[in-house]
Amino acid sequence: MTGPDLPTTSDELLVAALARGDKQALAVLYHRHSTFVHRVAWRTLGDGEAARDVTQSVFEGLIDGARHFRPQARFTTWLHRVVVNRCLHHLERAEHRLREGGHDDAALERRPAPEAASPERLLAGKELGAAIERALADLPPRQRLAIVLADVEGLDQRGLAAALETSEGAVESLLVRARQRLRATLGALRAEWRRP
């Protein structure tokens, strides 16, 4: 596969080239999709190191599995599923470490100190952003992923159902619970986040 054609080549053909060891195909796939992967991981996991690990892990999975990719499958569906699974796996491991008595330093670090959440400080947009991220981090993992994929990445119900490997009805239920919980957490700041 040659350079000039690569930017317009479909993901599926690039995966086929990657299965033959094409380094350029890997680079194009990476530049096309790594920002999405990294952003979802960052929003879901809340820290840069974990997001980097998940990003690398997702593309390692792509390299290792390229030979088994079915041409009729849609690449982005596969990608969304792998991102979801890697993020859930990472969160499960972090939760396990906490249960075993360890500390999730990254999670602790990303959360504002209690005094930082006072209404006065939250008037600043930056603090509001931190409060939203904190509210996201307090959601259960699948609710968090559903909200990130729906509201930040703009996936529709069908795409969400495929990514989360569940029914569209279950996605609706996940999203409602996530929105209700976010609303309860951020309720005191309603005037701020509803400001146009």
Partner: peptide, 24 residues
């Protein structure tokens, strides 16, 4: 409004170049 606020969060930085190097 919450959806709009989530979309307005500043984007995280892109993944470091070292990731692609490791993949290659």
């Amino acid at each position: 409004a919450m959806r709009a606020a989530l979309q307005a969060l500043p984007p995280p930085p892109p993944p470091p170049d070292a990731v692609l190097d490791a993949l290659e």
